[in-house]
C-alpha cells in the first residue's frame, strides 16, 4: 500500500516540478521579450549570434536537405510510376519539403547543432560567474547575452528551412531528371502549378518561425538555469536536444492540424 502511495506522491512531484519549470520558462520568455529590442538596436550583437547559430549551421542544413531531396525523389518515383504519374514527382517533392520536411528536419538539426552549443555556452558562462559579473556591472545579462541568442534562432530558422527545401528540390532534380530521366519541363511546371504560395510556402515559414521560438527559448532557458557543474551543463545540453525535438514534433502536429484543416473536408 505504501508503495502505491509513494508512487502517486512521486507522480505528483514530477507533475508539479514540470509545471513549475514551465512557469519559470514562461516568465523567462517574458523577461526576454521585455528586452528583445536591445539586439535590434545593437545590431552587432545579433550579427555575431546569427553567424554562430545560422551561418555555421549552413553546411549541415544544405547537405542534409540535398540528401533528403534525393531520397524523396527515388522513393517518390518508385510509387508514382506505378500509377503512371511520375511527372508529378516535382510537386510531390516540393510539397513534402516545403510543408513538412523543410521546417521539421531543419529544426531538429538546428537543435542538435546550434541549440546545444548555445546551452553549453550559456551554462558555462553561468558556471564561471560571467553572467553574475555582468549583472554586477549593471549590464542586464538577459538583454546582453540571452536575447541576441534567442532572436538569432528565431531569425535563422526560417531562412535555414528555405535553404533546406531549396537544396532538397535541387537534389530531387538531380536524381529525378538527370539520373532517372523524368521530363525536365513537366518536373518544374508541375511543381509551379502544384505549390501554392500562401498555403504551402507561407505556412511552412510560419512553422519554422514557431520552431525557431521554441528551440531558441529551450536552448537559452536550459543554459541559463543549468546547475553550475560539469554534470549540470552536460545534462542541460542533452535536455535541450531532447526537449526541442519533442517540442518541434508536437508543435508540428498542432500546426499542421490548424493550417490544413478543412482542406479535405
Amino acid at each position: 500500500m505504501s508503495n502505491v502511495i509513494e508512487m502517486i506522491e512521486g507522480l505528483g512531484r514530477t507533475v508539479l516540478n514540470g509545471l513549475a519549470r514551465l512557469g519559470l520558462a514562461g516568465r523567462f520568455f517574458l523577461a526576454i521579450m521585455m528586452v528583445i529590442g536591445v539586439p535590434v538596436r545593437r545590431f552587432s550583437l545579433l550579427v555575431r549570434e546569427l553567424y554562430f547559430s545560422g551561418v555555421r549551421s549552413l553546411l549541415i542544413i544544405v547537405v542534409s536537405g540535398m540528401f533528403v531531396g534525393m531520397v524523396l525523389a527515388i522513393q517518390g518515383y518508385e510509387v508514382l510510376q506505378r500509377f503512371g504519374s511520375s511527372e508529378t514527382l516535382g510537386v510531390l517533392v516540393a510539397l513534402s519539403l516545403v510543408r513538412e520536411l523543410g521546417p521539421v528536419v531543419t529544426a531538429l538539426l538546428f537543435a542538435g547543432r546550434a541549440g546545444s552549443a548555445v546551452t553549453a555556452e550559456i551554462g558555462l558562462m553561468q558556471a564561471t560567474d560571467q553572467i553574475a559579473a555582468m549583472d554586477m556591472m549593471a549590464v542586464n545579462p538577459i538583454a546582453r547575452i540571452i536575447s541576441p541568442r534567442f532572436l538569432a534562432s528565431v531569425v535563422s530558422m526560417p531562412l535555414l528551412a528555405c535553404l533546406f527545401s531549396t537544396a532538397g528540390v535541387f537534389g530531387a532534380y538531380l536524381v529525378g531528371v538527370k539520373l532517372i530521366g523524368i521530363d525536365d519541363g513537366s518536373f518544374w511546371s508541375q511543381m509551379q502549378a502544384g505549390v501554392d504560395f500562401r498555403l504551402d510556402i507561407i505556412n511552412g515559414l510560419i512553422k519554422s518561425l514557431v520552431f525557431g521560438v521554441a528551440v531558441g527559448l529551450i536552448a537559452v532557458f536550459e543554459g541559463y538555469y543549468a546547475p553550475p557543474t560539469a554534470e549540470g551543463v552536460s545534462s542541460a545540453t542533452t535536455r535541450t536536444v531532447v526537449t526541442s525535438s519533442l517540442a518541434v514534433l508536437m508543435l508540428d502536429f498542432v500546426l499542421t492540424v490548424w493550417m490544413f484543416r478543412g482542406l479535405n473536408g
Binding site: 558555462l124 558562462m125 564561471t128 560567474d129 560571467q130 553574475a132 559579473a133 555582468m134 554586477m136 556591472m137
Partner: peptide, 12 residues
C-alpha cells in the same frame, strides 16, 4: 561597485 569574482569571471 566593482566586484572581483573568485576566478576573475572574465568574458571568455
Amino acid at each position: 561597485f566593482g566586484m572581483l569574482f573568485q576566478f576573475g569571471a572574465l568574458f571568455t
